[in-house]
Amino acid sequence: MLVIDGVDVQRAVGMDLLAEIPADALPTADLFPEVRMEANNTKDGKTYAVTEKFGYNTISYDKTKVDPKDMQDLSIIWSDKYKGRIALYDYYLPMIGLVGLGLGKKTAELSDADMPAIAEKLSEMKKVSKQVSDVVSSQTALATGEVDILVGGGEWITAALSGEKPNLDWTVPDQGAVRWAQSIGVMKTSKKQELALKFVQYIVSPEGQARLATSSCYWAMPANAKAGEHLSDAQKAALRWNDQAAYLKKTQLYPIPSAELDQKMQDAWTDMMQQ
């Protein structure tokens, strides 16, 4: 069994790690169209993995402290309005993707030429932020009121806390946001192929999806559109389940830069932190 970032499935297949999964064994038609990701999960018409969950790097916020309407415009992340009350999630790829979206650039089309404009916005963003932090620190900062906005957050930051911190919420702004997806497959070397496949089938079933999405301390989106039947109203609200169709349309996958562009992006991110 292998749980793997959606963008890495092809590499795993290339390394001959994954066993083929019979196409009819999976409820592919029930998955949200945007997360079926055939280009990632299949090769030469054969299926090797299936998207088991996904999520967004977008904006999480404390709705009692900020105006939720402001959160619909991505440019709020470099605006003065909430100066010193913003935390930035310390992962350059989705963050540069988000900034790109704010500038009207598609994540898949980012190039060297876009970097100066992005670096400038990163710098503006840093000026109005309070901290740049990892998952734990970011979540802590938002939960304790140290900051009111977390750029790069999403359902995975706030949904799990919806019970004890109902003031926390998240949204996908009008310009869109960055989306990630995670796939599951069966290892070729597995000695219990059938059992493994059974597990995969359970994981992507509506019930398995609902439980997976709301089980751990970081929630995520079920990839199976029918999982809604197994979610409570509160869980649906926390996950903004009813907005998914719209959100999926607005969001784009992580940038996949070349090695050179990746270096430039990391340099830009490091430069930003040192400012």
Partner: peptide, 23 residues
């Protein structure tokens, strides 16, 4: 510095970690 500094500035060990962990 990683936990308390809020990444508002990086010290040399943090930059070394960036080279290792990210790049």
């Amino acid at each position: 510095p990683q936990i308390l500094g809020g990444n508002n500035e990086l010290v040399l060990p943090q930059i070394i970690m960036l080279q290792l962990g990210r790049r």
